Simulated scan of single mutants.
Amino acid sequence: MTEIHTPRLLLRRWREEDLTAMAEINADPTVMRWIRDGSVLDEEQTADAIERWEEEWDEEGFGLFAVELLGSGELAGFAGLSVPHFLPELSHEVEIGWRLGRPFWGQGYASEAAHAALEFAVQDRNLDRVVSICRPENTASENVMRKLGMGLERETVSPAHGHPLRVYAIDLTEYQG
């Protein structure tokens, strides 16, 4: 089982007991406002998503980690790697992404988890490059991308929803962490 420990977090594979906490995160309109069309997800949709994330681990050898606080054992959300199938022009790439519940915002957890996932991409999966995608209004995620050393590569449009997207990227062949 793949686990990554950071000073404050445990990044790990998903467990059955994670469903309720992740469903609460996905049901928050403020959390979901920059995701797809901004719609919230219910518990069944969250269960389907977790199942897809776990399948990606089996198929690709990477995926989205459940992010747990070491101190309390609370599920804060997710961070990790995935193939961005929602954007066909990038379906040959690997995306680094994250989603945390609002109580965990503004404390550096997203940056800490994303940095650990980036280290995993380089050290464990030998990836040469990763991208990250966000809506232009999502300045908090853009700040995390910049902290990771990613640069704005281009702007595009979501084919499913028609809103603008920004694609950030980093070349990992010379990544120093």
Rank of each mutant, 00 (worst) to 15 (best):
H5G: 05
T6S: 05
L10D: 00
L11A: 05
L11K: 08
W14T: 08
R15T: 04
E17V: 06
E17W: 08
D18A: 00
A23F: 03
I25A: 08
T30R: 15
R33P: 12
V40W: 05
Q45Y: 00
D48I: 03
E56W: 11
E59A: 09
E60K: 14
G61Q: 06
G63K: 08
L64N: 12
A76V: 06
G77T: 03
F78E: 10
A79I: 05
V83E: 00
P84I: 01
H85R: 13
H92A: 15
E93P: 01
E95I: 04
W98R: 10
R99N: 09
G101A: 13
R102V: 07
Y109E: 08
E112G: 07
A114T: 04
F120N: 04
F120I: 01
V122N: 09
V122M: 07
D124K: 15
D124H: 13
N126V: 12
L127T: 09
V130L: 10
V130R: 07
V130Q: 07
V130E: 11
S132N: 06
C134F: 05
P136E: 11
T139C: 05
T139L: 14
A140S: 11
A140V: 05
M145S: 12
L148A: 02
M150R: 00
G151T: 13
L152K: 11
L152P: 00
R154T: 15
E155C: 11
V157F: 02
S158K: 01
P159K: 07
A160V: 06
P164E: 11
L165G: 05
R166T: 10
A169D: 08
I170S: 07
L172Y: 07
T173H: 02
G177D: 04
